[in-house]
Amino acid sequence: MTTHDDVVEERRNFLYIATGAAGAVAAGAAVWPLIDQMNPSKDVLALSSIEVDISVIAEGESAVFLWRKNPVFIRHRTAEEIARAIADDNAEDLIDPQTDAERIQKPEWLVMSGVCTHFGCIPLDQQGDFGGWFCPCHGSHYDISGRIRKGPAPSNLPVMDYVFLDDSTIKIG
């Protein structure tokens, strides 16, 4: 007389393992679209790079552009500002040490994200103790190279991928 438990205990049977494995594959394949659909859709990704005309930005001025729905700061730096930025390359109080050269392609053009690395507010231009930017939310000070110098932000304003298509056009992203 067989018991029902005998059947349940035939676990090591290859057929059961093969079926279980195939079933797991099916379940995984079914779940993936449900997760991936939350990733940015194609129309959102289409706007993932922008081309910016920088010829309109005069020396000593900054402009803000929207890239991936977030602000990007582009500053046309004066010679004095560039010198100041380089001078602080090895300052002892750099919270996130980085030289100015590591953050730019052409010294007169500073191109970086305008989102404070603390909790995401937008820093104010030409304010703060370091002649750069100041974030009013929690008091982070960034210098003329966008480096965090004082305050709670943990890292410098991020520099994203960009290329000069020509002297007056930058492609961001």
């Binding site: 993936w32 679209p33 449900l34 659909q37 939350m38 194609k42 959102v44």
Partner: peptide, 30 residues
Amino acid sequence: VLAMHYIPDITVAFDSVQHIRRDVNYGWLL
């Protein structure tokens, strides 16, 4: 999952369904 993308506004409802089919990852499948 579809409700994450559908817009119940008469001017864009039809378009939002097309947006799901064309642009949302696996939207056509869902």
